[in-house]
Computed example of a mutant assay.
Amino acid sequence: MSTLLRVEHVSKHYTLSGGLLGAERRLDALSDITLSVEAGETLAIVGESGCGKTTLGRCIIQAQPVSDGRVTYHPLGGADVELTALNKRQLKPWRQDIRMIFQDPMSSLNPNMRVFDIVAEPLRIHKIAKGKALEDKVISTLAKVGIPAEAVGRYPHAFSGGQRQRIGIARALVLDPKLVIADEAVSALDVSIQAQVLNLLEDLKREFGLTYIFISHDLGVVNYIADRVVVMYLGHVVENAPTEMLFERPRHPYSEMLLEALPIADPLRRKGRSTELRGEIPYLGNRPKGCPFHTRCKYAEDRCRAEKPVLRPIAGTAQEAACHFAETLTLKGAYEDNPPQVASAALAGAGGLPGPAGQ
């Protein structure tokens, strides 16, 4: 595989007003993020709410400008493009290649537009098709995600949550992108509909040769769909690993904590193990010194409170971790309580793609 996208030392901060008497404060939403996305893979970005994963997705597509660092797109067969160096006009053609599926399908779809116009809008903006060619492209794209031609004149409120998410997927795919960023694309759906949408995303990936960045807080979903996982905490990448390796033996205590919280088929198998997430995420405007996770880590030592660890490769593995003791800690994975097939089988068994009238 070749690298399709490279994020290098990206940081994003906001300046907050302190009110009438307070001084302005800087809030660091992202801190020195470096990662790459390989063509054809599904890279998952996971972490608790507030860890910066959605901000990172928006910075990648330049919906929000980065404060530092750069994002470079490597189109197959073309010259590298530094997206962070482009203005809005220069970015426009590259937004055909990199598209985003948003978390809430109801709020991301214009309630005053018909489904046909919602999906046709990107084609019109980029002046790719018009007339009969535009109509055919919209209807064929909607058909691929399970929305029948007779429904294209309806408005978003007439569809179920799962159908609205399919419309959002069609809007992202209508420009034939190379990279799709799915931001919590199934979190607003119930479990059976999640399975249908995930299976749809997998089918579309194979059919169109897509690459995904899948942003999620649900490790069960990530285990099903992702090839590789980036774990974020407090605006930092704390671990980067192939999915199976992460679930079998995490290298960062935060990853272990997330895996301990996974639901399992037989809770008695977890008897004696703590599944409670320790403490709360610190306020971004008042980050702890040293390792950002030390305030919640049961393995923390004095070095962790004084010295911030860097993300580095772990010898003999395909994993990276930002922990001083990544090589020496023996952390527990998900497979000790759950066979590796459980999450995937549960989701896959919930149902395949429905017919055109399905949810």
Rank of each mutant, 00 (worst) to 15 (best):
V191G: 02
G352M: 10
A170T: 11
A261M: 04
E82G: 02
R70N: 00
L331F: 01
E207N: 10
S344A: 13
M1W: 08
Q64W: 07
A129R: 14
A29D: 05
D227V: 04
Q359S: 14
G285M: 13
K53H: 08
H294V: 06
G22K: 12
L262Q: 12
L4Y: 07
T15A: 09
E260N: 15
E276H: 15
R269Y: 05
A326E: 07
N87L: 03
V221C: 04
A348S: 12
L35T: 11
D337F: 14
L353K: 04
L201V: 05
Y212A: 05
Q163H: 09
P263L: 04
G352I: 13
A44H: 06
K12D: 10
C291D: 06
K144E: 13
G351A: 07
V46Q: 01
L83V: 06
F214P: 04
I125M: 03
I61Y: 00
A357V: 11
E280K: 13
G50P: 01
S192D: 10
D104Q: 08
F247C: 06
G47Y: 04
A120L: 03
Q194I: 02
R287M: 11
E150Q: 13
D136N: 14
R269M: 10
I314W: 00
T295L: 13
T295E: 05
G77E: 03
L347K: 03
A120G: 02
Y224H: 13
N223S: 14
G209K: 00
S49F: 09
Y254Q: 05
H126N: 06
A63L: 15
V152M: 09
G47C: 05
V342G: 00
Q319Y: 01
I61D: 06
E41A: 10
N110F: 06
K289R: 15
L43D: 06
N110S: 12
I213F: 02
D266F: 12
F325R: 09
V174S: 03
A318E: 15
T141C: 11
L347T: 00
L173V: 07
I61A: 12
E239C: 02
L43K: 06
E239S: 10
A315R: 15
M232F: 14
G162W: 01
D203I: 11
I169H: 03
A133R: 13
M257Y: 03
L262M: 14
R58F: 11
T42D: 06
V230N: 01
K178W: 09
T55S: 11
V10G: 11
M257D: 05
E207G: 09
Y283W: 10
S67T: 14
A346Y: 14
M113E: 03
V191D: 09
E202F: 11
I314C: 12
D302P: 04
K137L: 13
T243H: 02
L43F: 01
A63K: 05
R99V: 08
G40S: 00
R228I: 06
Y155M: 00
A321C: 07
C291K: 09
V221E: 06
K92S: 15
L27M: 13
G209Y: 02
S140A: 15
R296W: 05
Y155D: 03
R114H: 10
Y14P: 05
L27H: 07
G18M: 12
V191H: 10
D227R: 08
I45D: 01
G279E: 08
Y73K: 07
V138Q: 04
I215R: 00
S187I: 06
G153N: 10
L201K: 05
V115T: 00
D203N: 15
A321Y: 05
